[in-house]
Amino acid sequence: MKYLFMLLLLILPSMALPDATRDDERLTLHVGVRADAPPFSYLPRPMFVAAGKGTATLGKAGYAGYIVYICDRVIDVMKSRRDLTPNEADTGLDFDVEIVQVTADNRFDLLTAETGTKIDILCDPATATYRRVRDHTASVPLYMSGIGFAARIRDGQVNTGGSGRIAVVGKTTAGDYGIKRILDAGEWPNYKERLLAYIHNPSDHAQSVQGAVPASLGIVEAFPTHEQAARAFCSDPEDAKYRFNYYVGDMEIVNRALMVYGTPNCKFERATATYSDDRYTIFMRNPEQADARKARLLMRFSRTLTELVLTNPSLLEEAFQANFERYSRSDKLRIFFWSLYGP
């Protein structure tokens, strides 16, 4: 019996060694989130009570929104599960999460970066375009939105003259694709000639700013964040040439950004129609751009997300209820949800 006990003392440490080695090589999932894209991925201001905060790492760090809620729930489920395949278990039953705040401008660059700041998962309202899906790994669709615009009301009426400018956020689909869809629908006839020139040669007709108002103004001004775009749209400079008539972006983001970042005296007509059908997905680092264990961890994230989305009750319904209180779903959005997880 004594010899058996001594033998166990020798064997047990060696049996525990693989787990200890995995703990020493604990993986870190770098998750990119936006601070300025309500109600999908944003960092609420102090004193602003935000619905839909996640229950895991992102929510505890203060981030909120529909996409943030989804990412947090997936991470939470991944950390709590123990029924893993051998390959999945090799990534570790637990892992660290590092939050990286991204912007519309740098988010996809960080998703492919090899050195320095980089991300593995992009948890923001990113539209699934041909180029993005071609260059990155995309999840199942998570939401159906569309390009819309808010219009300033001055002197008691919507300002539709062709002299005002249009605010967008740079490196989003609003600046060219979105404006083209709005023109195709017959909107903004007074702007059409100038905007078609902008679409065909954006550098000559747009202005990208990093703070100060430029001396030379383009008809379209691209801002780094929705907060800056909303504040500029709500401003009323004395010189009319500096004023904005329209703020273009995904309908829900434009409306919520004006509610969160707009000034109290800002009068505008909310975006009520969409001119495109845009599906949001969560983009991930491509497997060939990660080592084998990180690639398997990303596969776990993707599989867990797909399971939680496609089974009923769906995570999408839970996230929607948490973030869109008193929001009436359009027929288009209702059909989109039905196509994923049924009635």
Rank of each mutant, 00 (worst) to 15 (best):
P13M: 03
S14T: 15
M15I: 13
L17Y: 12
P18L: 09
P18D: 09
P18V: 09
D19H: 13
A20S: 12
T21Q: 14
T21P: 14
T21L: 13
R22Y: 09
R22L: 12
R22I: 12
R22F: 09
R22E: 10
R22K: 15
R22H: 13
D23Y: 15
D24L: 15
D24V: 14
E25D: 13
E25R: 15
R26V: 15
T28F: 03
L29I: 06
L29S: 09
L29A: 08
V31K: 01
V31T: 07
G32S: 05
V33A: 02
V33Y: 01
R34H: 15
A37W: 04
A37H: 12
P38V: 00
P38A: 01
P39N: 03
P39Q: 01
F40D: 03
L43S: 10
P44K: 01
M47W: 13
M47K: 15
M47E: 14
M47N: 14
M47R: 14
A50L: 03
A50I: 02
A50G: 07
A50V: 03
A51P: 15
A51T: 07
G52R: 05
K53L: 09
K53M: 11
K53I: 08
K53C: 14
G54N: 03
T55E: 07
A56W: 09
A56I: 09
A56H: 12
T57V: 10
T57H: 11
L58Q: 02
G59L: 00
G59D: 03
G59C: 03
G59K: 01
K60I: 05
K60S: 10
A61L: 06
G62I: 00
G62Y: 00
G62E: 00
Y63A: 08
Y63P: 13
A64N: 06
A64Y: 02
A64C: 12
G65R: 00
I67E: 04
V68A: 04
Y69Q: 08
Y69F: 08
I70C: 08
C71M: 11
C71N: 12
D72S: 07
D72Y: 02
D72P: 10
R73G: 09
R73C: 08
R73T: 10
